[in-house]
Amino acid sequence: MVKIRLSRYGIKKRPFYKIVVADSRFPRNGRFIERIGYFDPISKSLLGSLQINLNRVEYWIKKGALISERAKKLIQIQKNKKDSNN
């Protein structure tokens, strides 16, 4: 089963997350199919701390990918940010 989820990078107490499409059987920081964005929770501004390619998210959802709860919240924030800019 393919999932859209977060993969943790960075150092101790300074996390940085990549938003990836991966097979659910692989470990959290293991092999992934495609990187579709990133999230930096430590960054002061939300504008520079979250970037997601929404076109690729929609593509993978159409292919049957499931989304983790945290990734779902971040995608919703990105959509709201995109709507407020237009």
Rank of each mutant, 00 (worst) to 15 (best):
I36M: 04
I36E: 07
R70T: 13
K3F: 14
G48N: 15
L74G: 00
K81W: 02
K13V: 11
R14V: 12
K62C: 03
S43Q: 07
Q78H: 03
N53H: 04
I67W: 03
F26M: 15
S68K: 01
V20G: 07
K12H: 13
L74V: 09
N86F: 14
N53A: 02
R35Q: 12
R56Q: 06
L50P: 02
K72T: 08
S45N: 14
R28K: 13
I36C: 04
N85M: 15
L74R: 06
N55Y: 10
S84G: 01
R31L: 09
R56L: 12
W60H: 00
S45C: 00
N29P: 04
L47I: 09
Q78P: 00
K18D: 03
R25Q: 11
N29I: 00
I61S: 02
E69Q: 10
M1A: 14
K82E: 14
W60V: 05
V2M: 15
R25T: 11
M1P: 13
L74K: 06
P41D: 08
D83H: 12
Q76Y: 12
K3M: 09
S68D: 10
P41S: 06
I33W: 06
A22R: 08
R14M: 09
Q76H: 11
L6I: 12
N55T: 13
S49E: 06
D40A: 05
I52N: 09
I33C: 00
K13C: 03
G30E: 02
P41W: 08
D23N: 15
R35M: 12
R35F: 00
Y9L: 10
S49D: 07
K12L: 12
I19S: 00
L6A: 12
G48D: 12
D83G: 04
L46I: 12
P27L: 10
S49Y: 09
G64E: 07
I67H: 03
N29K: 07
K79A: 07
V57I: 09
I67A: 01
L66D: 09
P15F: 08
A22M: 13
E34G: 07
I61P: 03
F26V: 12
N29L: 01
I33T: 11
R28H: 07
I33G: 01
V57Y: 05
K62F: 01
N53G: 03
